[in-house]
Design a protein around this nucleic acid. Sequence first.
DNA 1: AAAAACCGTGTACGACGTACACTCGGTGTA
DNA 2: TACACCGAGTGTACGTCGTACACGGTTTTT
Lengths: 263, 263
Amino acid sequence: MASAESPRRDPALILDLFWGTTPPPRRGPRGGLTVARVVAAAVEIADAEGLEAVSMRRVAEALGVTTMSLYRYVPGKDELCELMLDHAAVPPGTDDWPVAWRPRLERYAHELHGTYLAHSWMLDVPVSGPPIGPNSLGWMEVALETLDRTGLGEADIFRALTVLTGYIRYDAGIVHALTRAEPRTGVAPEEWGHVYGQMLGRVIDDGRFPTLARIAGSDVFAQQASVEEDFAWGLEFILDGVAAMVAERGAVGRDRATPGEEA
Amino acid sequence: MASAESPRRDPALILDLFWGTTPPPRRGPRGGLTVARVVAAAVEIADAEGLEAVSMRRVAEALGVTTMSLYRYVPGKDELCELMLDHAAVPPGTDDWPVAWRPRLERYAHELHGTYLAHSWMLDVPVSGPPIGPNSLGWMEVALETLDRTGLGEADIFRALTVLTGYIRYDAGIVHALTRAEPRTGVAPEEWGHVYGQMLGRVIDDGRFPTLARIAGSDVFAQQASVEEDFAWGLEFILDGVAAMVAERGAVGRDRATPGEEA
DNA sequence: AAAAACCGTGTACGACGTACACTCGGTGTA
DNA sequence: TACACCGAGTGTACGTCGTACACGGTTTTT
């Protein structure tokens, strides 16, 4: 079952890291550092200068400590990055959010999208699995709680959640890439439609991409919209899908849907 | 307009790299290498040992050349990685594909999903913008051509395409992360549902995640499915959304939809 | 024949992640 | 109270990475 070859990081230990549930040491001096302080320092650097500026030396320097001392609190840089993700993704308060599932989910999507863009280095951290940290799960809770208001069954909820999450992340990733490329290209993300259409036009003159050529020749790329509007369009598509599912299942208004019974 | 501070890589030059449209040199010895050979060697390494095994030295060694000679053909490692992406993403032949848009799009999604998983290092390459290489555009052409069969307008087509692409990539990314973690955790991607549910149960005993706790307690995570089936579920959600859009617009069967006219 | 353009080489630098052996201060037990 | 020990933080070192730079050698144009 459990492979014995793992050199470091038992998945149970890494869970402790995320939740701070490591039992305190019983002897020796109390350390001046904590996992939280290390992670916070790393996040600060990433927010200011991007993920590539985060190195173990740099984080240690910011804390006034030697590089190697960080390894007392974090198994390695990969784990540090995962912890950074959870640390930066503080879930939003939902007190003033709409109550109905659709505007509420819309709000959720924009909020998460905005969080990604506010800490866009998050999009550079390779995903290492489903969320397990308290903050990430906090986001998940909000999404699930909202989707639960549709009355859909758990399976449907998760399908929608996956699609939605994927879209949010993907779109934010594109925006981030374009934003990062701006100093090199001199093209703002909003202008990318134009430029992209022109690039395509210059390059696909042979007959290999007929549909693409036709569409690139149309004005789809030309109509400049804000990043947020572009995002909202795809989002509406997904929300429509959820609504359709709700209508089909006849779900909203029913009690807790008990999956498995009834067609 | 154009920022003068770019140390290297004019976006026009990088386009030439992708399309091999650099005019041949007019003097000097003909080089034994080509961009294509360099990229191919890098892809071969990545396919065999993952993206982290791809270093300039390693690629050069595989080609029997010095490290620095690669820089005659490629501006740097980042650009090499982008080129690798396009090189590896060979678009599929569609001769034996279904004709109707829905099964055809389904086929497309599974094919792309499979390509990502077959060269899973592709998911480790940070996205640098919309597709511009010939192969990437080949995929895009297939998707657009298929979506065009719905009769939807260009804007709707692109909304659907973005959501679909995001989902495919996101799901593949998760599977890849779990697969890569398997040697460490001893948990196969298919078993992750179980384990994840248990992890959540262990960690969220307080009242902060009521919905999550309830759903984690249900059997959603428990019902083991293959990776491909899991993917298909979310995919159906998206295809349903497209179908709903088609029904609403009354699009299929009409001539080329002319956007802007008619409600 | 001379000059220009270009390919590939060799060396070198700074930065990275982290393994390892160590010192020293604080704490629980004898 | 004495002491043994555990653990926090240090210092050094190794191997690897991307790539800047100056240089010979080869091919083509003038």
